[in-house]
């Protein structure tokens, strides 16, 4: 049940291999993972992404989100990694992985973790392009997505 907040890049493949090995040893029948990648969707070419966070609250919020997922789906394992600082296009931003006895729970829990990470974890993205900088605004549909889990 790991939560990591870091500036350093991570190797999503290596993380998944390690997580899956632990999950298998623990008797899990299903592992689901999601990796978010910095993509270039800005009108001008994206030079970099700067992610600010709230040290202290970030760890609490991620731990709380993880605990809720673990309790709701009886997960045997959960992993959340989220980066902050300066990221370049094509860098991995974050990943989640879930382990459960069956796939339905692993998929649902990963989906839940992503929905909550989007709008309940204190991170803010700023896009730096050749023509200027802009804070990414929260999307109403991301907020609305949380309603699926009430």
């Amino acid at each position: 049940m790991t939560v990591r907040v870091q500036t350093a890049p991570f190797d999503a493949g290596a993380e998944l291999t390690r997580f899956s090995a632990g999950a298998a040893a623990g008797g899990a029948g299903a592992v689901v993972s999601f990796t978010g990648i910095v993509r270039d969707l800005t009108p001008a070419p994206l030079l970099r992404l700067e992610i600010e966070h709230y040290p202290g609250m970030t760890e609490r919020a991620l731990g709380d989100i993880r605990d809720r997922a673990c309790a709701r789906w009886s997960l045997s394992g959960a992993l959340i990694i989220h980066r902050h600082g300066t990221l370049m296009p094509q860098d991995p931003i974050m990943m989640v992985a879930t382990a459960a006895p069956h796939r339905a729970a692993a998929f649902a829990a990963a989906d839940f973790l992503m929905d909550y990470l989007k709008s309940r974890a204190p991170f803010w993205k700023k896009e730096v392009t050749a023509t200027g900088t802009a804070w990414v605004s929260g999307k109403p549909e991301d907020e609305a997505a949380l309603g699926r889990w009430d």
Binding site: G36, Y54, M57, H82, I93, M94, M114, L117, K118, S119, R120, A121, P122, F123, W124, K125, W135, V136, S137, G138, E143
Partner: peptide, 10 residues
């Protein structure tokens, strides 16, 4: 107390 815009993680 902390003030911030809507969060944009993930």
């Amino acid at each position: 107390v902390a003030f911030f815009p809507p969060m944009t993680g993930g």
